[in-house]
């Protein structure tokens, strides 16, 4: 079986893998935050030091905030989280521009709050998840290391990437 051209909209498997990698990154980042805070506490009052024992609510909120912050910054700046970089995809607006901070934040909130919406990309003919539909974003294959310049350039020949998008 030949590998299709690395262009077009990413499908379910790639998105799930990206999400798994990003979840790992968020988990590691949260652990780093925890140990960082513990180190600060140790530095501040070494005699009264004890490991922080946050509640489940605090832990969950921290994880959510870290995930939202991480994804927002990634999508708004480069369109790529670490998972997206590893799998070679990029999150852009449907107009093939940067998503912008507000839409990036909104997409991050929806992704973290309703992750099951990701599955809709398998059913959608245009491979769009709920997040994409609500925010007007698209996840495209992009293996170039050009900061998204290639992915943001309209395809003059009307390639598969452009055809995969439904009419606006």
């Amino acid at each position: 079986m030949s590998v299709p051209e690395p262009q077009g909209v990413a499908g379910l498997v790639t998105r799930v893998l990206v999400a798994a990698v990003d979840a790992t990154v968020v988990a590691l980042g949260s652990m780093g935050l925890y140990f960082g805070l513990a180190g600060l506490r140790l530095f501040w009052s070494p005699l009264q030091f004890r490991w922080p024992q946050p509640s489940v609510l605090v832990s969950t909120c921290t994880l959510v905030l870290v995930a939202i912050g991480y994804l927002t910054v990634a999508w708004a700046t480069t369109g790529r989280s670490y998972g997206a970089t590893l799998l070679g995809v990029r999150v852009l607006a449907r107009s093939r521009r940067r998503l912008g901070w507000m839409r990036a934040l909104l997409r991050a909130v929806i992704c973290v709050g309703v992750p099951v919406g990701l599955l809709w990309s398998a059913i959608s003919p245009a491979r769009r998840s709920w997040q994409d539909i609500l925010v007007g974003s698209v996840v495209v294959y992009d293996r170039y290391r050009d900061g998204g310049e290639h992915a943001m350039t309209p395809d003059p020949l009307g390639g598969a990437a452009a055809r995969a998008l439904p009419p606006a």
Binding site: M1, V3, P4, L17, L86, R127
Partner: peptide, 17 residues
């Protein structure tokens, strides 16, 4: 290795679709 993962994931996307 990364290229291999990307290729496999793309093929999997196509298969799922």
């Amino acid at each position: 290795a990364v290229r291999e993962i990307r290729d496999e994931s793309m093929l999997a996307d196509e298969a799922v679709a």
